[in-house]
Design a protein around this nucleic acid. Structure first.
Lengths: 225, 225
DNA sequence: CCTTTGTATTTTGTATACATGACACAAGTA
DNA sequence: TACTTGTGTCATGTATACAAAATACAAAGG
């Protein structure tokens, strides 16, 4: 084995060749979330591979990945469609997500480092600034990240993965349901409560707050289904 | 539109053409769970294609699906390996699964029909018979089904899906950790408690029992990692 | 003898060609 | 005219061929 201990540290300057597969997955996922590909609509393979400039092989592999993620439905010999979420689907996802985030909150209180909590606090503050100026889009994006980060603080990799998956599935719905929200102020209050509970490392209180927050999301979102 | 109201009912005798993709997914998943493909080992595409008698296209699509399910790791240009679970992985999965099943239990108490509960009770009785004769394999199989069914009673499709996914990932580990178990009696007692709680529709008690049951699973399994 | 570098081989990634099944539409029949 | 049934077209499923990358190995140089 070679001794590398006195070599200079080149840090993380990896050149990573992302496979076409990965690129297509990300791209198509975004198209779905942004609504360019409409829920329920057929996915025209020929057309999309044309636009993306890739061949069918990586494209179809990407569809399989997205199908496993729950964003796409593949029916044998009948092509693929963008999954259209029924109100029941959305409710069931929020129900599960609510409990996952509750768990995440409780674990975070028990396990997260002070530094990590402070970082989240900083992110929260940035969100508050965007709220002050009613800057919806950047607030929305930070909000997604806030929830992901909080999940990460649980130190539970599986929890992170499942939270991310559900968040991705719901992203579009939430984005739509976000526009006509008089609920924004309520959401902000939830977040204040969450941060406070986390700062005091009060697990049950944080868990409660997160579950309640998700329940409110359902109220906010259900009409736009 | 054709009126089909006075036609004989042919029931569910669909001929379903399962695509090669689906067949390969199931087959390879089984190979992984049964341990024929060992955790951490490289998946030799050429060899498996040969054995399964399919071409690379459906096989590789199947790998993508299994990767999304978390059973396989695909590293670009470096081939695929069977995911090897670290103890941390397993713990995190059981932690999440425990909370999902707790949720499932609570929902089942609130929502399940009496008939459905009775069916589960019947399944439980069959399990007890296999326990009486120490018939491990059929007990193990019914146990898997017991947990799936209980999840189904929650009436939450997302919960069912995620429970199934985690159960699949852990199947192999659990199977291994099952052999030298003096824990069997304990597991049976847990199940008795669970059925009793469900019969009384005592949600918190059932939730508690399921979470405790999963915690015990960790105790049972952790040494064989 | 060890390290490095070039080269061959193997394996993976991608494109394309061919086969098969689904759907639409037209022609035939009651 | 309405329903059935046949046929053509198109989309999807699968196989194979080709390209590119990674690994293994051997030769050259220190």
């Amino acid at each position: 084995m070679t001794d590398t201990s006195d070599l200079p540290d080149f840090g993380g300057l990896q050149i990573r060749t992302r496979s076409l597969h990965d690129q297509v997955v990300d791209r198509v996922r975004d198209l779905i979330i942004e609504g360019v590909l409409e829920p329920g609509s057929r996915i025209d393979e020929a057309r999309l591979i044309e636009e993306l400039g890739v061949s069918r092989t990586p494209f179809r592999e990407a569809l399989r990945t997205l199908a496993a993620e729950g964003l796409v439905i593949v029916r044998p010999s009948r092509g693929s469609t963008v999954r259209k979420l029924t109100p029941e689907d959305v409710y069931s996802m929020l129900e599960v997500l609510g409990h996952l985030e509750r768990l995440a909150g409780e674990l975070a209180c028990a396990r997260a480092s002070d530094d990590a909590i402070e970082e989240l606090e900083a992110l929260h503050q940035r969100m508050m600034e965007f709220y002050a100026t009613r800057d919806r889009m950047p607030y929305y994006k930070l909000n997604q990240e806030f929830h992901s980060r909080l999940a990460a603080l649980s130190g539970n990799a599986t929890l992170v993965e499942m939270q991310a998956n559900l968040q991705a599935r719901l992203k579009r719905i939430r984005y739509i349901g976000n526009r006509k929200s008089d609920f924004w102020a309520g959401a902000v209050r939830d977040h204040e409560e969450m941060m406070s509970a986390l700062a005091h490392r009060n697990g049950p209180r944080l868990g409660e707050a997160m579950a309640a927050h998700l329940a409110r999301t359902w109220e906010r979102v259900k009409e736009s289904l």
